[in-house]
Every structure is written in C-alpha cells, then in structure tokens.
C-alpha cells in the first residue's frame, strides 16, 4: 500500500512559497489502476517524486509498504518496489540491444545469470516484445521503445508501476500499445498501476481517477463518477470524455435519457434504447 498523510511540499526555501502539495491524503491499495489527472502545476509529478524518494515531504509522511522513501536506508528498497516510467522513451534506454537494456537493472542487483535471463524473457513477454529481444532500440517505433522502457522496469519485479505521461510523445498506435500493455499488466499480472496523464481516454480506462488541483485532491473515485459533473470539470479546466459531453446535449434535446454515460459503448446503448422507449 502507498499512503500519503497530510503531505505538504513546496519548492524553494520558505513555507510562504506556493504549496506544490498542500496537505495530501491518499491511499493506493495493491492491485489498483489509478489515473492522476489535473492541470499543469497541480502537483502530479511532485506527488510521483515523493513515492520513489526523489523528493521528501516537508510536512506529513509518505509510506510505501511501510517504508519511508525519504529515508536513505529505505529508499533503495522502495525503488525496487516502485518502477518508474517517464515521458520520453529515448531518455530511458541505455543499451544498444533490447534484451541487454532490460537486463541492465537485474544485472545491477547482482542476480545470477539464469535468473536475469528468466526475468528478461518474462518482462519481454509481458509487454509483448519477445520478437524484438535482439533488436536495436533506435530502430523501434515510439510505442515499442516505451514498452521496452516498461519491460526494463518490470524486470526489477516492481509491485507498483508509476508512469508520468508515458504516452504523450507517442503516435496514436504507440499510445494504443502502451495503454493495452498497462491494462494487461494490471488485469492479468496484478501490477498496481499509477498513471499520470493528460489524456482523458487514459483516465477513463483506470478503475479510479484522482483529480489534483493546486496540490490538493479535489475529486477521487471511479471515472464514471469523476467525469460526471461537466460544470465541475470545466471549472477545474479538465477535458470531459466525448461521450459524456454528447450525452448532456442529447439528453437536453430529449432523444436519450440522462443516465450516467462515460464510454462510447454507454452512448451507443443509450441511443439504441431510446429507440425502444420511443416505440413503447
């Protein structure tokens, strides 16, 4: 479990500076898929950096499975538990062959050769990149590179996967690949996923969406609830999913009933049902 209790953080010297985290309380259980959304400067990346000890809380406390990421004696254990993936895959790949890149972490743990081999093969299978084990990373597409970066993290066998806008530099196919990979890792392999994103479609695929504004959690719940109130979203400056937007207008025009709608499937069903209701 990852837990934040009353965490405050500010960049710079004084408390009078704007708070990047303004008293954050958060609990992420094992197995969850949580998306973090919010405007630029709302504290998403600051939050992430507290989880793996890159930043330490000025007030309050952060715990990862009971360990304190800010404590130098715990930080390395925490980083084994929490794998991080960043925006730009090119900055995260160090070796000239895919499988060597993935082996980099386990090698640094000093694991025996057959264990490294096993982990590399499993990590490649998890991101469905087995065919590219001997490829040169620079010849891969953006989505493939990002999957290699994810595999490199997985080879460390993290319990938590923390990703900071992992798809924002990818093309649409790359985005799809990474989204499918995350879904697979969470649903099939039980990895806890914490995903920071600006894409509303990614926030919608999570089980839980946490909305940050000015270093505080303003909304926290299933996407279906979080994205329900359009006025609130607009005030925060967040996009709403297209089906939700249309649902409001279609309900107002009286052609569908105003039931909660989040996905394309919801909207299609609502449109089809309306036909039946009108016939009755």
């Amino acid at each position: 479990m990852i837990e934040f209790s009353g965490v405050k953080f500010w960049y710079g010297e004084r408390h009078s500076e704007r708070l990047a985290l303004a008293g954050m309380d958060l609990r992420v259980e094992e197995g969850e898929f949580v998306a973090f959304v919010g405007p630029n400067g709302s504290g998403k990346s600051t939050l992430a950096r507290h989880i793996n000890g890159l930043l330490s809380a000025k007030e309050g406390r952060v715990e990862v499975d009971g360990l304190n990421p800010a404590d130098p004696s715990d930080v390395w254990k925490v980083r084994e538990l929490v794998g991080m993936v960043f925006q730009n895959p090119d900055n995260q790949i160090v070796a000239t062959i895919v499988e060597e890149d993935i082996a980099f972490g386990p090698e640094n743990l000093g694991l025996p050769g057959d264990e490294i081999r096993r982990r590399v093969d499993q990590a490649l299978a998890s991101v469905r990149m087995e065919r590219y084990a001997r490829s040169e990373p620079h010849l891969l597409s953006g989505g493939q590179k990002q999957r290699v970066a994810i595999a490199g993290t997985l080879a460390m066998r993290p319990k938590y996967l923390l990703l900071d806008e992992p798809t924002s530099m990818l093309d649409p196919a790359g985005r799809r690949e990474v989204r499918e990979t995350l879904d697979h890792l969470n649903k099939t392999e039980g990895v806890t996923v914490l995903l920071i994103t600006h894409f509303v479609d990614e926030a919608v695929m999570a089980d839980r969406t946490v909305v940050l504004v000015d270093g505080r959690i303003t909304l926290d719940g299933p996407p279906r609830e979080v994205f329900d109130d359009l006025d609130v979203l607009k005030k925060i400056g967040l996009d709403a999913p297209l089906p939700r937007l249309l649902a409001g207008d279609l309900a107002e025009a009286g052609v569908i009933s105003d039931r909660p709608i989040l996905t394309i499937d919801d909207l299609v069903e609502a449109c089809l049902n309306q036909k039946l209701e009108t016939r009755d």
Partner: peptide, 14 residues
C-alpha cells in the same frame, strides 16, 4: 454538428 446529426438520426428512427 455531431450532436445535431445524432439528434436528427434518432428522431427519424422514432
């Protein structure tokens, strides 16, 4: 325009 098109189509069906 998407909204208008759906409204039209659903009204035609009804």
């Amino acid at each position: 325009s998407t909204c208008e098109a759906i409204v039209d189509a659903l009204r035609r069906r009804a």
